[in-house]
């Protein structure tokens, strides 16, 4: 049963690498629903297909078996660039910021790519920085001069810059200490519970899994 606030559905999704044997699946018949206002964790051992699932949800890999529905629409039918720069925000374990841009530029770059006429980009970026716990005076600082936690906060701010409904984070706290991990989780929780976003976190961390609303576990499919 699909609820009205279900924003993302993974329906009977299977995935196999091109060079894999016929029955060698990374994902097999995966069915997950993601609702607005909730924070999800996708857990699983290494090789269970967590990152692959994330790639399929974000449209970075084509989903050829099963369907990924965003707002009840198969993302295959959507412009995936548009989907990624408007509807979903992605946060990576290794932050994936542009190193030659400063903090502010990394955040406003996403607004630029989004193409919507966002007014007062700079002010909005500064607000976002504050909301993820970054000091405004870091705005002009080069990315490589920030700590890991600070860089991840910038990455979160960047993913929020065009106000997407879904935030997808791949091991967002994997490189961070526990204290920072909790800070980042607090941001995600606030986004889900206060700003009605759907936050999906791919994680190994039991600490993260314990603090989310729903935990989906992936297991390696049997041959």
């Amino acid at each position: 049963m699909v609820k009205d606030d279900t924003i993302l559905q993974v329906k009977d999704v299977s995935y196999r690498y091109n060079d894999a044997q016929e029955n060698e699946y990374v994902l097999k018949n995966v069915n997950f629903n993601f609702d607005l206002g909730k924070i999800y964790a996708i857990k699983g051992k290494s090789g269970s297909g967590k990152t692959t699932l994330l790639s399929l949800i974000t449209g970075l890999e084509p989903c050829n078996m099963g369907e990924i529905l965003y707002n009840k629409q198969n993302i295959k039918e959507m412009n995936l660039d548009r989907y990624r720069n408007s509807e979903i925000g992605i946060v990576f374990q290794s932050y994936n910021l542009i190193p030659f841009l400063n903090t502010l530029e990394n955040i406003t770059l996403s607004m630029d790519i989004n193409g919507k006429n966002i007014k007062n980009k700079k002010e909005k970026a500064l607000e976002l920085m504050e909301s993820v716990g970054l000091n405004k005076n870091m705005a002009d600082r080069k990315i490589l001069k920030l700590s890991g936690g600070e860089q991840q906060r910038v990455a979160i701010a960047r993913s929020l810059s065009y106000n997407p409904k879904v935030i997808i984070a791949d091991e967002p706290t994997g490189n961070l200490d526990k204290e920072t991990e909790n800070d980042i989780l607090e941001i995600f929780k606030r986004l889900a519970h206060e700003e009605n976003k759907c936050v999906i976190i791919v994680t190994h961390s039991p600490n993260v899994a314990n603090q989310v609303d729903v935990v989906y576990e992936l297991t390696k499919p049997k041959k």
């Binding site: 660039d81 989907y83 990624r84 720069n85 992605i90 910021l97 542009i98 960047r158």
Partner: peptide, 12 residues
């Protein structure tokens, strides 16, 4: 790397 990041965040 730059290309990868820009493509990931939706630059066509």
């Amino acid at each position: 790397y730059e290309i990868g990041v820009l493509r990931t965040i939706g630059l066509s």
